[in-house]
């Protein structure tokens, strides 16, 4: 007999799914704000070759970009207690997301900074701005504006990647779906709906961040 799809046993747990989705969005928001801040810091050190931080950020970026997020997460959650750092599932998830996004955004933002036209630096110098003032008032915002779409894509990659945080008992969307399917034995339907939620969230977050970027970074709502 052909399989009968039945979504009702999943929809009965809609509240759990929505709570999980909200938790995923919360993780993403925290990861995005802190991760991009870390990226700005790293990009300054890299673009201006401020040693030894530039070299340290270089190693960090390569270490993170060449290992899986899941392994980073396990290392933080299971490995760090050996050093006396014991984190909850939430804390470890946020930390892993920040560290992961920080590495990618360091590279992305650095590219934006390095694409600053030389004339901009000269104009700022001719107006007697110092290096720090030039960076804050002349370089940073246009650099972020140039790479904002790439940063937004990276935030979304990190949000989708956070599905694996369910493995360290962070009660986000995938964790909720796992819990529900263990109760109703409707794994396919449950994960199908969770996937649809992720898809909608990815669209939503992209729209939202692009608008925020247009408003606060490009500086001109269109």
């Amino acid at each position: 007999m052909a399989y009968q799809f039945d979504f009702a046993p999943v929809l009965a747990h809609t509240d759990l799914l929505l709570q999980g989705a909200a938790a995923t969005l919360g993780l993403t928001a925290a990861g995005a704000v802190l991760g991009i801040a870390l990226g700005v810091l790293g990009a300054i050190c890299r673009a201006w070759r401020i040693q030894p931080f530039s070299a340290a950020f270089g190693v960090y970026v390569e270490a993170i970009r060449n290992t899986p997020f899941l392994v980073q997460l396990f290392f933080i959650f299971f490995g760090l207690p050996a050093l006396g750092v014991k984190l909850s599932g939430w804390e470890a998830s946020i930390l892993a997301m920040v560290i992961n996004l920080g590495a990618y955004s360091t590279e992305i933002i650095r590219a934006g900074i390095e694409a600053t036209p030389h004339g901009q630096m000269e104009a700022a110098a001719s107006l007697a701005l110092n290096r720090a003032q030039t960076f804050v008032y002349v370089v940073l915002r246009p650099a972020l504006a140039r790479v904002w779409p790439a940063l937004v894509s990276q935030v979304i990659i990190v949000m989708l990647g956070s599905a694996v945080c369910s493995q360290i008992a962070a009660e986000e969307l995938t964790f909720a779906a796992n819990f529900i399917q263990s109760r109703n034995f409707r794994a396919f339907e449950t994960f199908f709906l969770a996937t649809a939620l992720y898809f909608a969230m990815a669209l939503l977050v992209r729209q939202l961040l692009m608008r925020l970027g247009q408003r606060f970074i490009v500086g001109r709502p269109r």
Binding site: L160, T174, T195, Y198, L203
Partner: peptide
């Protein structure tokens, strides 16, 4: 637009 983990589950 969806997590790789969900793709694998499905």
């Amino acid at each position: 637009g969806t997590p790789l983990l969900m793709q694998l589950f499905i």
